[in-house]
């Protein structure tokens, strides 16, 4: 479903992605983990072309995302993206946040978009928050609205860029539960995360990145018990034993 081939990217003199290649089959859930500065966020942002790449190719559902001839807006409407900082539209209610793109991009009628939006918000435990503005919602609620907003476009894949990193600890679970439910429904997903327990539990594959490279790619069982690379061993010893 997602195919990343030999992607390179530099910011000025800084090589942030070096020859990154990876495949995400349909309905698979892949976690990207690694130390900060590894290029995880940059990589996930190249998948919907929020970041341009220098060379290589990224294909999502048969569409070469960075091809100049591709209608990127059409392609992006099939790719849900959830940000670390939610990025809800502060002047719109929760429901309006969710229905805006379906109405304006997909051309859904207001009533159809609202019906679907209410259904999604309700399924994410926000049935009583349709008319609330973002600044009246907790971080966990805001992130769930953001997930509903992405799902409202009926995407083929979902990308999560550190979805729980900006949350207070007691709100992490509600967001992870929402993502877990989505994984169980068979959604193809890529998740940049620091939640190791979560990655271990729901992911089909772990991508370990460091210094802009994919250092190791393994099943969670293998990666968390017996990683091959020294970088991964070091990293795990730091994040798992505290």
């Amino acid at each position: 479903m997602i195919s990343i081939k030999h992607v390179n990217k530099t910011f000025g003199m800084n090589q942030v992605l070096t020859d990154v290649t990876l495949e995400v089959p349909k309905s698979n859930v892949v976690a990207i983990i690694g130390p900060s500065g590894a290029g995880k966020s940059t990589l996930i942002r190249t998948i919907n072309a929020l970041e341009p790449i220098d060379n290589g190719e990224i294909v999502v559902d048969g569409i070469s995302i960075h091809d100049k001839k591709v209608n990127i807006n059409k392609a992006r409407s099939e790719i849900g993206f959830v940000f670390q900082s939610f990025n809800l539209y502060p002047f719109l209610t929760a429901l309006q946040n969710v229905t805006l793109a379906p109405i304006n991009v997909k051309g859904l009628s207001k009533s159809a978009a609202e019906e679907r939006g209410k259904e999604l918000l309700t399924s994410l435990g926000l049935g009583d928050k349709f008319d609330a503005y973002p600044n009246r919602l907790s971080g966990g609620q805001q992130q769930r609205v953001a997930i509903a907003r992405a799902l409202a476009m009926d995407p083929q894949v979902m990308l999560f860029d550190e979805p729980t990193s900006a949350l207070d600890p007691e709100m992490v679970t509600e967001v992870l539960d929402a993502i877990r439910k989505l994984a169980e429904s068979g959604m193809t997903m890529v998740v940049v995360t620091h939640e190791m327990g979560f990655a271990k539990e729901i992911c089909d594959e772990i991508i370990f990145m460091a210094d802009g490279k994919v250092v190791e790619q393994a099943t969670p069982a293998k990666f968390f018990t017996n990683p091959d690379s020294e970088r991964a061993q070091n990293f795990l010893s730091k994040v798992l034993h505290h």
Partner: peptide
């Protein structure tokens, strides 16, 4: 992030 969120949804 506002522009990014909007563009991400296909606008």
């Amino acid at each position: 992030g506002q522009m990014e969120a909007a563009r991400s949804s296909g606008m």
